[in-house]
């Protein structure tokens, strides 16, 4: 048993203040008791999916060290990242890289794009001289299918969206990370170029042993490349398991609704019955009072209101759903 690469234990993040006698309760639970383990070998692509406001970006920010958890732990190679010393933190920042949604905003428009490489090479002392520098950049660009003379001396606006995103992946690769947190990396890239980015992610996983935490709202791309998937609803896990299993055979009513709503690219297969959009007052249910999906759930039962359902283990070892519909199944153990 090798030690896991990343372990998230009971991660909870609450924004806002608890009620006091002067102010109302302004707390929003962005993430609640979230658990996740990514093994070091083999590398995997783990998807975190959910609609806006589901807590997926909070999770990404927590892993990247941008926000501190309210409770719970994030362990990287067995060490809690909240208590890392400065030098270890630097190492962590090198080993865990990020790719963001908008590949334009991360560039400084005044510098040529090679600046992003020069910066990390200097910061992390990746090369001893010019020749070596050229070597490492070339190698990284080759991985993403770009040639240095084509892109390095250009300004960000002269590159296409796909090229810019591939440059960001090359930059991340340069640091030989163990994990890349990819927050919606393809949602702003054209459909025809999306495949290329996804393919690069798969190659980095398979050929270079780099794991991904793939944050997305798009289940279809997750289905194409992902290993495990965790689907969040308002900060809590709704369903998790092996991606093909979850998407081909969704168990949680929310996940069923989600998958049913993906438009099928065939004019002969139409959406089923009309769905009701939840009104605003229904969307945010009170924290800690039963299942969050209850107001929108077609199967709502009285007990759903009393207490949040535990995560049940469904048939198939690693397919789990947090829904009372499966209460005859065993409750899943906390994975840590």
């Amino acid at each position: 048993m090798s030690q896991p690469l990343l372990q998230i234990i009971n991660a909870t993040k609450i924004y806002g203040n608890a009620s006091s006698f002067l102010s109302a309760n302004t707390q929003t639970v962005a993430l609640q008791d979230f658990n996740l383990t990514i093994d070091e070998h083999p590398a995997t692509i783990t998807t975190i999916a959910g609609e806006s406001g589901s807590g997926k970006t909070t999770l990404a920010n927590a892993v990247l060290g941008f926000v501190n958890l309210s409770s719970g732990q994030i362990l990287y190679k067995g060490r809690d990242i909240a208590t890392l010393q400065r030098s270890k933190m630097l190492e962590y920042r090198r080993e865990v890289q990020a790719i963001f949604q908008d590949p334009y905003e991360v560039y400084n428009p005044f510098y040529r794009v090679r600046h992003i490489f020069d910066m990390v090479i200097r910061r992390f002392k990746l090369a001893r001289n010019k020749a070596e520098e050229r070597e490492v950049i070339q190698q990284a660009l080759k991985i993403v299918g770009l040639r240095d003379e084509e892109v390095l001396e250009k300004y960000p606006h002269q590159l296409s969206g796909g090229q810019r995103q591939r440059m960001m992946i090359a930059r991340a690769y340069l640091l030989k990370p163990g994990l890349i947190v990819a927050d919606e990396p393809v949602s702003m890239v054209d459909a025809s170029l999306r495949a290329m980015i996804l393919d690069i992610m798969m190659r980095l996983r398979d050929e270079h042993n780099i794991s991904f935490l793939y944050i997305t709202h798009d289940l279809s791309t997750a289905y194409q490349i992902g290993n495990d998937i965790h689907i969040l609803y308002q900060g809590s896990i709704a369903e998790r398991g092996e991606t093909t299993q979850v998407i081909e055979n969704p168990k949680h009513p929310y996940v069923q609704l989600l998958i049913d709503s993906i438009p099928v690219p065939d004019p002969d297969i139409k959406w089923g019955e009309d769905v009701e959009a939840a009104g605003d007052e229904k969307m945010r249910s009170q924290a800690n009072s039963g299942c969050r999906f209850y107001p929108r759930c077609p199967h709502g039962m009285d007990r759903c209101l009393e207490k949040q359902p535990p995560i049940y283990q469904l048939n198939g070892s690693d397919h789990e759903a947090a829904c009372y519909l499966y209460d005859e199944m065993p409750v899943a153990e906390k994975r840590n």
Binding site: S160, G162, D190, A191, S192, L193, R194, A195, M196, L198, D199, M202, D218, L219, S220, T221, Y223, Q224, I225, T244, I247, I259, I262, P265
Partner: peptide, 21 residues
Amino acid sequence: LLIASIPSIKERKPLKITEGL
């Protein structure tokens, strides 16, 4: 190309890649 690049949720298939300049 546009139609081939739609990610399916019915079957996993090799991604179709095109250079897009």
